[in-house]
Simulated assay, not measured.
Amino acid sequence: MDQSFRQSLKESTVHGTERFPFGAYSHHFSPGAHVVDSHWHNEAEIFYVVEGEVLFQIGSEYISVRAGEAIFIDGGDLHTGHAQGIHGCRFYAMVFDFGMLASSSYDHVQESIIVPFQERRATFPRRINSETDGRLLGHILEMKRLSEHKPDGYEVAIKGHLFLMLYEASSSGRLVNRSRSDAVDITKTERLKKVILYIQNYYHRSIKLRELADLIPMSEGQFCRFFKSMTGQTPVDYMNSYRVRQAVELLRQPDQKISDIAFDVGFGHISYFVRVFRKIMNCTPSEYRKKL
């Protein structure tokens, strides 16, 4: 695996703290919105859908998750998501370093439970719902409640619920081996990483579809179908989404003009920048800056 490609997609957000590496986030998205751009992180992640429906893609696997269900993403998995239906979606994400459950010494729990989990030889099922994994879902809901209210000692309770999830999955035979990946999927993922690295390096200027297709190489038509199948977005939509995310960071600097920001992130026309920004962020750049 080319580490430069892999590193380019790695999320840089720090989740939780060094002493308690557990971060929880609530999000709401309008119908058809791109919920999660293609990315990965070392930490594991649990998405619980509160309202609506989200179509997740993990590698080349597609999974639809409805309100009241959750999805588990192993650390290192490339993933993306889209709001489905006409009502948008609301979800709660919990991102954590599974090392927080490691034993202080190499005991039986570390050997038989923690290490196999970290190596993906015995990990949680992808889709978690009340029909097949009611007890697991109950622990997820309780961790959500604890994260929202943060009572004294909630950190201990969250670690306890993660341990109990491991017990429930193990005792019910629901632990899954995802240590092996299909060679075809690996090739597709590496091709996608190559294209996304190129976009992230050159987003500030005009990028032609032909440039991206030549990286693989494919015809432009083949490339567009490949990219859409892997990310759920067209190449243009992905580039616009990435550019808007860069613009969001620049808007935090009050001395920069919005027109300058538009050109700095690769938009050739200010009107097009405003239109795309509104579509993705549900507000104009100036309105976003006022919110800050």
Rank of each mutant, 00 (worst) to 15 (best):
D237H: 05
L164Y: 12
I270H: 12
V35N: 09
L251N: 01
D107H: 00
E155M: 14
S241D: 05
P151F: 13
Q246W: 08
Q200G: 15
I113M: 01
T123G: 00
L141M: 12
F72M: 05
A169G: 06
S112V: 10
F72V: 01
H269F: 13
M230W: 00
E11N: 07
L250F: 13
I114V: 12
D74T: 00
I207E: 03
V49A: 01
K193N: 06
G32R: 07
F124N: 03
A24H: 11
T231G: 09
L136Q: 03
I270Q: 03
E168L: 06
V274C: 12
I199V: 15
R120M: 02
S286D: 15
K279G: 07
V36W: 02
F98P: 00
I261G: 03
H87G: 15
D107M: 08
I58C: 08
F29H: 06
R180Q: 15
F226M: 10
D264Y: 05
G232Y: 10
A157G: 03
I73T: 00
R19P: 04
V184Y: 15
S259V: 13
F263C: 07
G52F: 04
V274K: 07
A183F: 13
Q256C: 11
E11S: 08
M94S: 06
D2Q: 05
V195D: 12
Q110E: 15
R210M: 13
P285R: 06
E168K: 00
K144P: 02
K144F: 10
A67D: 07
R180A: 14
P285W: 02
H34T: 02
I258W: 12
K228T: 09
R135D: 11
